[in-house]
Design a protein around this nucleic acid. Structure first.
Lengths: 147, 147
DNA sequence: TCTTAATTAGGAATCATTCTTATTTAAAAA
DNA sequence: TTTTTAAATAAGAATGATTCCTAATTAAGA
């Protein structure tokens, strides 16, 4: 099954029509390196899909988030960003470059999960846990590396 | 030193004129229970300060954030919210009530900090770390309790 | 008290996002 | 394969939070 078929299947699985637009948008988020905004996706996609409208991007994003195929990523500058990486993971926010860097660490996830389980949080059905690390890139030309 | 004087001092310390508006707005955030938005603050403050404008609230918030007296709090619904609690702490987001609940736990903070220190994150000057717990309140009439 | 640079009020402008509606389309049914 | 139809889309208008602009006001130092 090729990539195209896989996308189609993932949409069908959640009960969505596999439209051209959805596939293009979903694919764009999946392959984007830096947690794109609606506008970013639009820019990335419009040359090969000139008739695809920004309104469609917004409504598709909402649909994909509703169906759990995509997550919203919060940022302090007022523009929503999106992430096709659904599993529990953490983010590093570079305040001086607007980059959002994935920070995956299963050990950390487990540690936090375990800690919270020991805390007994009453009257809350937890859906997602994520650690936000905010900081400034020291050298903007280099990337942030985690060892 | 009374509360009024304290506010005045905190503003002066960071090099800000202690204007009536700033004191009123800062005080409103400090005493607000639920991480207010600009609009919330405006509503809360306007009956006793009828000439205070929404534009002033926004510019004051920006100033207070710049000076580190207030933090922005991220939410997925597109309205920025503010927190006068500056120290490292975590938030619980109730998706069904829009509440943001402080979750303070020094043990958790230390545990995360220690873990990250062991990870050696290169080329990043970390400014803030916070854990976001997202979930649904089970009984909307009751509060979320952490034991 | 005077001076002045900083701050504010209030309305206009902006910009991200959502809404509306006529048109198009995926996919189920025939 | 063709038809049917509910769902999805395009495009532009509308909304709503936030920012901008500028004249008037004010805190605080001289």
């Amino acid at each position: 099954m090729n990539q195209f078929e896989q996308l189609k299947e993932r949409l069908s699985e959640v009960g969505l029509k596999a439209t051209q637009q959805r596939m293009v948008i979903f694919h764009s988020i999946m392959t984007s390196k830096n947690h794109p905004s609606a506008e970013n996706i639009f820019e990335q996609v419009k040359s090969s899909n000139p008739s695809l409208s920004l309104a469609t991007i917004y409504s598709t994003l909402e649909t994909l988030v509703d169906k759990g195929l995509v997550k919203k990523v919060l940022v302090k500058d007022g523009v929503m960003r999106y992430d096709a990486h659904i599993g529990t993971h953490n983010h590093i926010y570079c305040t001086n470059t607007s980059e959002i860097i994935d920070f995956e660490d299963e050990e950390l996830n487990q540690m936090i999960k375990k800690f919270l389980a020991s805390k007994n949080i009453e009257n809350l059905n937890i859906k997602d846990i994520s650690l936000h690390i905010e900081g400034e890139k020291i050298d903007k030309r280099k990337s942030v590396k985690i060892n």
